[in-house]
Amino acid sequence: MSTDTSRLPLPVRLYPRAYRQANGAETAATYADAVAGARLPARIAEAAGVTGHALRMRARLTSERTFPRVAALAAPLVVAVAAGQSAAQLFRLPGSTPPETLDGLGQLAGLSVTGAWITGLLWCTPLLAVLAGRWSLAKVLGVVAAVAVVVARLAWFVPRMATLLPDHLASLLLNVGLPQLMWAGLLVAAPRDLLDTSRAGRLLLPVAALVTYVAAAVGWQEGWRGAVLLVGAVLAFALGFTHRERLFPVAVLFAVLPLLIVSYTSPVTLFLGEAGLSYDATVAVSALPLIAAVVAGCLLNRRPRGAGSPPAGSVR
């Protein structure tokens, strides 16, 4: 079914050329039927959906690949864990100090107090959107929240540039900023058709958020309690093996890794510095979990063996 691509609607023209030539006419026909007589919000949603699928094809994040499947399993956990962590930063238990918090200097979780509150509340909104059954909105809110954290982190850094070296910026973003971007990346990578839209699945999310809140609030206290988050993450990973989907433990790992990075990067960096490692070496070591996650994501995203390209090209 070859196509004169210049006649296709704009969202359909965004598909990669090979896919567009094989499937463009049919996708355009379905899109035209779906928007015929529809109101503006529905037409915008249709255009956004086709655009999203086209960009997903270009980014090689289609739902037959393994990494998007992992991301789809991780996405509900991401919104719950992110909300729980943010709540633990904003509504602190007595004796609980979120990482990178200096109360006397007006610094909360590596940001100004105002920045921490804005971004913290923003990170609670994807959970609310998912509970309302609005996954597309949750993804947008997650990206907004992650970008807001990076902007707030940079806003915190810029006035201090005189006293900090520019290469400190990388290590600062490793603690706060890049982990949240990883969460946003997982949300974006999760294909809509693989997300759990069941009511039962949604009802478990507030529980997961509450568990994260308690684990973080306790884990950010002095002494042995500091291990609570790590033990909780290991337990969650182990429980992942009881799930009928075999990729679920990997999804758990991806979802909780940003929380572990936020919580443990500073203590680990401090420990390594006291052990005599140079500044650059400590930064390199603290970057390893994120680098490992990116490498793992790329490896998981390799095309499945035996898969043809692009699909829907041949008649049975």
Partner: peptide, 12 residues
């Protein structure tokens, strides 16, 4: 089901 979601699922 939106068009984009449908074709993502059909491809898979």
């Amino acid at each position: 089901m939106r068009t984009g979601t449908l074709y993502g699922a059909l491809d898979r």
